[in-house]
Design a protein around this nucleic acid. Structure first.
Lengths: 151, 151
DNA sequence: TTGATATTGGTGTAATGCTAAACTGTTTAG
DNA sequence: CTAAACAGTTTAGCATTACACCAATATCAA
């Protein structure tokens, strides 16, 4: 086997791929990403930007670097992201009180309201996906398992 | 709340993010990706290239477009990938027997041996990650759940 | 047969995300 | 005071993705 001359393409054998957690993770994540875009693209928010907003909303006053470390991003990638969010009037940079090198990030008044709309949509999307699972326990188990695989 | 002046960054509150399947999927997938790179970077194989090889190995004779469709890639992305794999003497393009537009993809003799080495490393990596789970059943359940979330 | 249409491999391009290096200004340690 | 470390920024390179486009070929209806 593995030396035929033709394949009618009716059904493709994924072989080893089907049993790889890494491959299935990628497929699932791509699906979440595209669904997220459908839900939030008109708001101009990508998953990466949403994560930044969510962190700042819960942790006002963090520096750019602190947010980057929390999310596992590179510091330099924060610049364009925060620039964009500042132009959208969602976040604002304020000079850090005791360190003139750094900025502290805060939500604007509009940003706080915007986050309510945004997180509402994201939660709807999450609940929609989670409804495919069989129980609340299964969801908890999935979250825990994904966390274990993230380290 | 949400209006402090300073954050000591001792511990960041991830808020809603911690309960989002989408976010945890992304973290887990990034971790798998980086571990995969550690294991296979010296062979010059990325996860995307590995998927192509795995498909061709199990389905010799598929056209480029068929492989792209199976993996959910864009056709145009296949060109550079197959070019690279042909230069590495892993795959080869042969003219399709009944369609002069298309090429059929086959493993080379060296490619078959290369795939054994490659898939061995990938399986080691997979087993290492899967060992964090509590049972074989849990792995099966995870694969099934990720598949459900991919559609 | 002819002619319209679809498909395949391929090219070019733009947008994105991720990394790494280097630079300025600032803080900290010795 | 000096040297090292750090924050933000810019720039570059790289891979991935998406889209429009082309030439050659295939398909199908008239």
């Amino acid at each position: 086997m593995a030396d035929d001359t033709k394949n009618t393409d009716q059904s493709v054998d994924f072989g080893i791929l089907n049993n790889l957690v890494g491959y299935r993770l990628r497929r699932a994540q791509l699906n979440f990403f595209s669904k997220f875009s459908e839900v939030c693209s008109d708001l101009g928010i990508s998953p990466g930007l949403f994560a930044i907003i969510a962190i700042v909303e819960r942790n006002p006053g963090l520096t750019q670097t602190a947010v980057a470390q929390a999310l596992g991003n590179d510091r330099s990638a924060m610049v364009a992201a925060v620039d964009k969010l500042e132009k959208m009037d969602i976040l604002e940079r304020r000079p850090a009180v005791n360190d003139r090198r750094s900025y502290a990030l805060f939500m604007t008044k509009y940003g706080k309201k915007f986050f309510q709309t945004l997180s509402g949509r994201v939660m709807d999307h999450e609940k929609n996906m989670a409804s495919r699972l069989e129980s609340e326990q299964e969801l908890e188990w999935l979250l825990k398992t994904l966390d274990i695989l993230s380290q």
